[in-house]
Nucleic acid binder design. Structure first.
Lengths: 201, 201
DNA sequence: TTATAATTTAATATG
DNA sequence: CATATTAAATTATT
């Protein structure tokens, strides 16, 4: 690993973090996530007040201490654009054609699907909620009875558990996804185990 | 159902969850969200059984001779895997002594896998991939150009490097985390020096 | 012990 | 709401 730790705490990286979008300059203009676009978003520091779709109360100064759960202390404002691509010219160790091919894929063609994610970081991400054991216990118990609690139940849970109703909803969403995943996995394993007949001892 | 394991393979896991909703008693006895109410809201869905994405291909028989990487030699699928005495859904969360017993029974002698590895496999963890220096070099080079390679690039890399595409994806995930970590650190160091933070404000 | 591959899950985005 | 994806936080291996 030590062979090419290039980006690690490089002297040039962190200063850029403080300067906002300057980092973007170092990549080629032809990238479809254009500088303009990023800059455009960059200027929207007032975004939080727009109240449109993305309300992010946890970005309010007053709410930095997340009222959320037991221990979410120590949340800091998001770091921006730490991962924007760096100068392509620095790629020397790839074989020529490999570099070319990969570069084409990265910066010339498609491949832009992840940049919406990246943009979201400009707006900050809610600090991950760490549910307590007790909270999860209760959530699980309710989940077993009803994996689709309505708003009223969610509100009650929120009350009881001192959580935002939003957290409850997300939790159930994720929990349902998990259940479904595990079903898929079980089925897969069962299919797999059915093929060899020597299962039965 | 076996899927209510929240806390990883931790010792406490969730034995309580199997007991039904008794645990609700750990909070004030008066639950305003009554079971009846919850039941009333219940609207179960039938989960579709799509086996599209197999979750643990390395547990698959057809992959016993891991075609995976250049140098993952030495990893073999344990013999005992074919007569799992336990329900599939619970495989990954066996207690240690259970695993030990099974290990003793099935793998006494012959196998040259270490106990730990055996246990690890049995509990469903993919054997750690050891990337070669060259693989890492190329991955690092691509990372500098694009830290969010899409599926195309990942596949191409997988091809070139004789790795699973999944390994590539995980690698980039971990690499981004590492970069972010290092940024956090250097940013912290820098805050002491200067107060440039509000430049663009 | 450290670095990092692998896992789990909360949060985000999309349809 | 389902689904896919990502980051955060861990676990655990080397």
């Amino acid at each position: 690993m030590a062979s090419t730790t290039l980006c690690k705490a490089g002297p040039m990286m962190s200063p850029n973090l403080q300067k906002g979008s300057h980092l973007v300059e170092s990549k080629p203009a032809k990238c479809s996530f254009s500088i303009e676009r990023i800059l455009g978003l960059e200027t929207k520091k007032t975004f939080t007040s727009s109240l449109s779709k993305h309300h992010r109360p946890w970005m309010d100064q007053s709410n930095i201490r997340a009222p959320v759960a037991a221990d979410n202390q120590g949340w800091k404002l998001p770091v921006m654009s730490y991962n924007l691509p760096i100068q392509v010219g620095t790629v020397r160790h790839l074989l020529e054609k490999e570099s070319a091919a990969i570069y084409d894929k990265c910066c010339n063609g498609g491949e832009r699907l992840t940049y919406k994610r990246e943009l979201s970081w400009y707006r900050g991400r809610r600090p991950r909620t760490a549910f307590t054991r007790n909270q999860i216990e209760i959530l699980e118990n309710v989940f077993r009875v009803n994996s689709y609690p309505g708003i009223d139940v969610r509100e009650e849970l929120a009350n009881k558990l001192s959580l935002d109703e939003d957290r409850i909803q997300i939790w159930f969403q994720n929990r349902r996804a998990k259940l479904k995943r595990s079903h898929r996995e079980s089925q897969f394993l069962m299919v797999k185990d059915t093929l060899p007949a020597n299962i039965q001892e």
